[in-house]
Amino acid sequence: MLKNSGVAERDLVEKVYPSEERRKKGAFAAIECFQRIPCDPCVASCKRGAISPPADINDIPTADFDKCNGCGLCISVCPGLAIFVIDENYSVDEALIKLPYEFLPLPIVGDIVFGTDRGGSPVCKAKVVQVVNTKSSNRTPVVSLAVPKELSMDVRGFCFDDGKEKCECDCANTQPHLHTPHSTLHTQYICRCEGITLDKIREYVAHGYTTLNEIKIISRAGMGACQGRTCRQLILNELAKTTGQPIDKMPVSTFRPPVQPIKMGLLLSEEEQK
């Protein structure tokens, strides 16, 4: 389930895709934005008017594929990193995926990396074709990857290592997964607002705190400015892995207002603000 895992399923994704016919015509924006939140910068970013202004700020944006030419201007603008541009006509057997990438180091054109799916698992090798990191990228560089055509609907990220070589981490995951040397765990932040590392989370799990709410109350993970938007799914994934419980069955914490931090003074009337 998207709500618990943070990973959109294929059927959900297919709904926002253009027709087979349109896909053949060239690049298009895949707006994989599935949560109703008050957000709309993508609308203004599109110079071609392909994303119509929502009736309600919480509405989920959709692209008009007759207007969209896959320019990719919207990619870096989306704070949710939810927009990708897909070109299924990149080569005979490759599709091009343009994706937002906010990690360091940035890849170099020509690198061969591992394309990962929405859940972060490596699924193929991919060639880095372009890296755009200009002022207008506003610190959200866009990386273009050439991937096998049949995976155009799946590859949404990449990593430099597919974890097939002997992994130093102590987790029970037998599937190929991201290489996580143990020595880096204590600096691997799960909750960035409160500075809680993966190491710390594992300590609490070992003490018997095995639900999201329990981890939250003991560590403060999820109580910071973002209110769990960053760490919620990371913690659920870790808990699912260590407790063996299916992630869909794990209780999540309550969503509460305000949706984003709001200055107290803004709630006062003009008179009172003086």
């Binding site: 207002p257 305000p258 709630l267």
Partner: peptide, 30 residues
């Protein structure tokens, strides 16, 4: 559940008695 009226009333009380705090961001109510 949480109600919007509370946040407004609370901000008003707080701004009146402790005006310096009006520039703080509220991150959550419950």
């Amino acid at each position: 559940t949480s109600g919007w009226q509370f946040m407004e009333d609370m901000a008003r009380n707080c701004a009146k008695l402790l005006p310096a705090l009006r520039d703080l961001n509220i991150v959550r109510q419950w």
